[in-house]
């Protein structure tokens, strides 16, 4: 074998070895990351970590309660909590927004960095930036209400697997409004939107990190948020 051939063979061997080493390293990194996630999950009180495949949010463009664009960029740079609901909500939304305000107060007392809180309306027909502002700020001056085209809200809600339905009562009869169906004008003020009450955690990269299923205890959120933020 001449020296040139030998050199080529050596080079090839090194490339193959490096390739295997790289693969091995990648594999161990994946395993290590999985283990770290499993360990973190076991420490969390109620938060559920989100699968890697669901973490990137689809592009969205809604309006905040100042009538400014609320898009993916608004979730970059700080931790954020998202909650979906509507201002005609008699029980669930006031409960959750009050709890979230208590959470921020408790975090402020502990001098922790506060997450942004967005209250996203599932009710484009009745909620406007103006109504969202008045409603949302009542619970906390830093909370931001979000509304937008129903199709845009639906698309974002679908990513988070928010379950919701529009219903109204005729006497004691429950009537469900299917997608595309019109709500009778006499029900315009009284229809209800049943919805899930989960809280979604977005990391400063604008990725969905975890979900807090309902019902929520302030202490659980208070304990889980630093675990998620300081991993």
């Amino acid at each position: 074998m001449n020296p040139h051939k030998r050199r080529v063979l050596w080079a090839a061997a090194v490339v193959v070895a490096l390739g295997f080493a790289g693969l091995y390293y990648q594999q161990t990194a994946v395993v290590a990351r999985k283990q770290a996630q499993q360990q973190l999950q076991s420490q969390l009180h109620t938060a559920l970590l989100v699968d890697a495949s669901k973490q990137s949010l689809p592009p969205f463009a809604l309006r905040d309660h100042h009538d400014q664009v609320f898009d993916n960029q608004r979730l970059v740079g700080r931790w954020s909590l998202l909650f979906f609901g509507y201002t005609h909500c008699p029980d669930v939304c006031p409960t959750e927004l009050y709890q979230l305000s208590r959470l921020l107060d408790a975090m402020a007392e502990k001098k922790r960095a506060l997450p942004q809180v967005f209250f996203i309306s599932l009710d484009s027909l009745r909620d406007t930036p103006v109504s969202m502002q008045q409603y949302t700020r009542y619970f906390h001056p830093d909370f931001i209400g979000v509304t937008g085209e129903q199709s845009a809200v639906d698309a974002l809600a679908a990513h988070f697997q928010v379950a919701y339905e529009t219903v109204y009562y005729q006497g004691s009869n429950l009537i469900k409004v299917n997608k595309g169906e019109k709500i009778p004008p006499e029900q315009a003020n009284s229809y209800l939107i049943n919805h899930s009450a989960s809280i979604y955690l977005i990391n400063p990269q604008g990725q969905w990190r975890a979900v807090f299923p309902s019902p929520h205890q302030e202490a659980d959120l208070l304990a889980d948020l630093p675990l998620l933020a300081h991993e």
């Binding site: 008699p90 029980d91 669930v92 006031p94 409960t95 379950a163 919701y164 339905e165 219903v167 009562y169 004691s172 429950l174 209800l192 049943n194 919805h195 899930s196 009450a197 989960s198 299923p213 309902s214 019902p215």
Partner: peptide
């Protein structure tokens, strides 16, 4: 709470059992 969806269900009445109580509370 029906499979994670919080449903507002209108009631024709609220039952208060004899020698008992019914608690009305958030959620």
């Amino acid at each position: 709470d029906v499979d994670g969806m919080m449903k507002m269900v209108k009631q024709d009445f609220m039952p208060v059992p004899a020698n008992g109580a019914l608690e009305l509370k958030p959620g």
